[in-house]
Design a protein around this nucleic acid. Structure first.
Lengths: 256, 256
DNA sequence: GGTCAAGAGTTGTATATACAAGCTTGCTTG
DNA sequence: CAAGCAAGCTTGTATATACAACTCTTGACC
């Protein structure tokens, strides 16, 4: 699994490839995107409101039209805006659906089965993310993210390894938590309420390291769920949940 | 797959590169996107292959770098490519993916990916059910149920084995179908509209027999989905879908 | 042999410009 | 007044250019 390749620790005196600068400059088009997002989320611009045109943004932010355009373009691809050649750019109308599957807290699940829950916190630190994680977390390669690795136990048997990258911009105090007392999911839910999630489920063979943690042989298949969660601010976290296939299953119940 | 082609009509007396005619013109960046998609879908560029750089595309297609860039950019946003500053652009790794939240027809899924679908019908007969199946199908042990076993192929590679028990009281003509022409799911949907479904997802090692059918080794983990579906009349069918873990994944997208 | 530096090649951001094409408005004209 | 046209806005496509930032290789130096 290539999800967490690079784990380099971020220290206080952070030398970036020999450069002394620590100030990260935000790209102009990102500033504009942020500005528009805030207007929408604060309710100042409601659905179907007209958004400033490319030329207006060009003036407001003192950028070129192509830069203003890029902000509008990306927000359109993300579904926040709708554009219409000749007439303008407008706030999109948002989808609202309720969930068919729910995201459960593993501690609750285990306790509901009448079993004992326990967690072991393996890693909790700031890391530089590689490219793949950066993309999924909406960061840039080499940016800093928080990383936690927690092993969940059911009746003292390891049942799930949780490896999680968290967007540090959205959850500032992540590194100060104690994940034997509260699960990462519980903490994140309290800090940044979920608005959206995607899951990808695969069957894999565990690496030697993970197999060791989960106390399984090297030919035990595992269920691996990659979960990406969003709050209204953006991508909050990227979790990889690995469980032995002979001890764990997923279920869903759909009603049409 | 995710490709769309928008045509643009240039009006009658518009000179396009010296030509004057009524003509449908595809935007250059779309032509490049199309070209790259074809290379990937035809298998000429496999996962992690390096894709021509912006400068190379600029030359090949006689466009500006910004235009070549746009093609790469959009394909990256669509998940076909992965870009890395300083090193290049590469074909992303994808697996076949189906949704946990909707019950899709595997033939449609495969065709939407632009791949060729084919099915092989292994078994289609009436069987006496054992106790476990009887309970799940709301029958009694020893009752007759219909059983089908169909192997689904994507680009001539086996991608999923479907083993299905069907309640004969609700779907009388099941045995007379030809499941190389219509998938069991399609047929059942037409006969008895779904009202409810449950899924159980596990990671398993395939048995020797199933491994042989799916053309995988005995230590390849598999995703196994057990799906029980209801119509308004009761339990319609019980399907076990087994797919190689290295070729298949499930996905879901929740919005809260 | 190992380390460092330079350079070449790549993507990322930003600007200025041009023209095409769709929509809206308002004015002209019949 | 109504129809139609033109002007002026909007977004869409495309180019040329510049520099920044990152990666990887190569070669010089210790």
């Amino acid at each position: 699994m290539r999800l967490y390749i690079q784990v380099r620790v971020y220290s206080a005196h952070y030398p970036v490839l020999g450069m002394t600068m620590t100030q990260v400059k935000t790209a102009k088009y990102r500033v504009i995107k942020q500005h528009i997002c805030e207007k929408i989320e604060s309710g100042q611009w409601v659905e179907h409101s007209k958004v400033p045109s490319e030329n207006e943004l060009t003036e407001q932010f003192s950028v070129s039209r192509m830069t203003a355009r890029r902000a509008l373009q990306e927000l359109t691809e993300q579904g926040l805006l709708v554009r219409s050649q000749g007439s303008g750019t407008f706030v999109a109308n948002f989808k609202s659906q309720s969930s068919l599957l729910e995201i459960r807290n593993i501690a609750d699940e285990i306790q509901e089965r009448g079993h004992q829950y326990r967690a072991q916190q393996l890693i909790l630190e700031a890391v530089k993310v590689n490219e793949e994680v950066a993309i999924l977390l909406a960061l840039k390669a080499g940016d800093i993210a928080y990383y936690s690795s927690v092993l969940h136990f059911e009746n003292n048997a390891p049942i799930q390894l949780e490896q999680r990258f968290v967007n540090p911009k959205l959850v500032a105090n992540y590194l100060e938590q104690d994940f034997t007392q509260i699960t990462p999911h519980e903490y994140l839910s309290s800090e940044a309420p979920l608005t959206e999630a995607t899951h990808e489920v695969e069957a894999i063979l565990a690496s030697q390291e993970i197999g060791h943690l989960l106390a399984i042989s090297h030919i035990t298949p595992c269920l691996q769920v990659k979960r990406r969660t969003w709050s209204s601010q953006g991508v909050v976290s990227l979790a990889t949940l690995t469980s032995p296939g002979n001890k764990y299953r997923l279920g869903s119940h759909l009603i049409f």
